[in-house]
């Protein structure tokens, strides 16, 4: 069996969720990667160094659009038993389209591989896990990165070749992107994440969290309540409807612990909660809880870390 993984990449490197998807793919068979989009050339070189990847296909150097990319994946599909992508915005955009074109039911957010036909995926915001067996001839799926340890970035020597071009159906065109520039690590790839909730009170107050983040080399996240209140940008949202993260350390500051939020971070290895409300549900999932006023505790934390 040969498995095709659609890679996400940024600045000439594959994203960590892509390396996790490769790890999931290796449970199924020989792994090929398709690298498409702006910067595909450089990212293909990086992809070729992933251990356990047999072949890298380089797609067009152009902004990725769902319709032509889906057409390209469908054209490649006959050579593969499984088509995988990380369950990122990009993967979730294109893979269901691919599945429908192949008359197959997509499997979204796969978090466990049982065998070639059987997979585990979360439903109801992760409050239940369903084990499902697909009757389709091929499997098209997106993979929840936090459920698979990523393969290392280095160690392999795959061949790189150009992917056969596919016709663009011309249904849409790319106008532009506003990607937030940050010196901090990507939320979904960070080893440590510190998030603020509505109790932060204002966007300015997030500065105290950012200082701790910079001490720890952590990414900064936010609860949906904080995002809705305008304290933090949309792409910082951790939760069922935002980013799913599973860092080694997750620090929740002034976050009550709504189910919505827990769904996005409960797989973190160590969870710390700082909240002045002793009854806040976040303490039920936290390994270490500190009942304290965040405006006092967070600056103290920064000072303590500086020691």
């Amino acid at each position: 069996m040969t498995v095709l993984v659609l890679a996400d990449h940024k600045d000439g490197a594959l994203t960590q969720p892509t390396r996790s998807t490769v790890a999931a793919a290796q449970k199924l068979g020989e792994v090929h990667l398709l690298v498409a989009g702006e910067g595909a050339g450089a990212a293909s070189a990086a992809a070729a160094r992933l251990p356990g990847v047999a072949k890298v296909l380089t797609g067009a150097e152009a902004p990725v659009l769902a319709e032509p990319l889906a057409a390209q994946l469908v054209a490649l599909a006959p050579g593969y038993s499984h088509l995988l992508a990380p369950a990122s915005a990009a993967g979730r955009n294109v893979m269901p389209r691919v599945a429908a074109l192949l008359d197959m039911q997509v499997l979204s957010d796969v978090c466990g591989v049982v065998d070639a036909d059987t997979f585990i995926r979360p439903i109801y915001a992760g409050n239940a896990l369903a084990t499902v067996k697909s009757a389709d001839a091929k499997k098209v799926m997106t993979v929840r990165a936090t459920s698979f340890d990523p393969v290392p970035a280095e160690g392999g020597t795959a061949t790189v070749e150009a992917a056969p071009a596919a016709a663009d159906p011309g249904l849409s065109s790319f106008l532009g992107a506003e990607i937030v520039k940050s010196e901090r690590p990507e939320l979904t790839a960070a080893r440590i994440v510190i998030s603020g909730g509505r109790a932060m009170g204002s966007a300015e107050n997030f500065a105290i969290i950012e200082k701790v983040a910079d001490r720890l080399g952590a990414a900064v996240g936010a609860s949906r309540a904080a995002v809705d209140a305008g304290y933090a940008a949309n792409d910082m949202q951790v939760g069922q409807t935002g980013k799913i993260v599973a860092p080694e350390l997750y620090i929740a500051v002034g976050i009550s612990g709504a189910i919505q939020h827990l769904a996005g971070m409960k797989d973190s290895k160590v969870i710390v909660a700082i909240n002045k409300d002793e009854e806040a549900p976040i303490f039920q999932v936290a390994d270490y809880g500190l009942v304290a006023d965040l405006f006092k505790a967070v600056p103290e934390l920064e000072a303590e870390l500086a020691k």
Binding site: A130, V132, A135, A286, G289
Partner: peptide, 26 residues
């Protein structure tokens, strides 16, 4: 196209413990 073989609850996270101060937390 999919057959649900089973549905189960995810492993529950156990609540940990409270610490008394920032110093203890670090």
């Amino acid at each position: 196209r999919l057959r649900v073989l089973k549905v189960e609850e995810p492993a529950k996270r156990q609540a940990g413990r409270k610490v008394g101060s920032v110093e203890e937390l670090v």
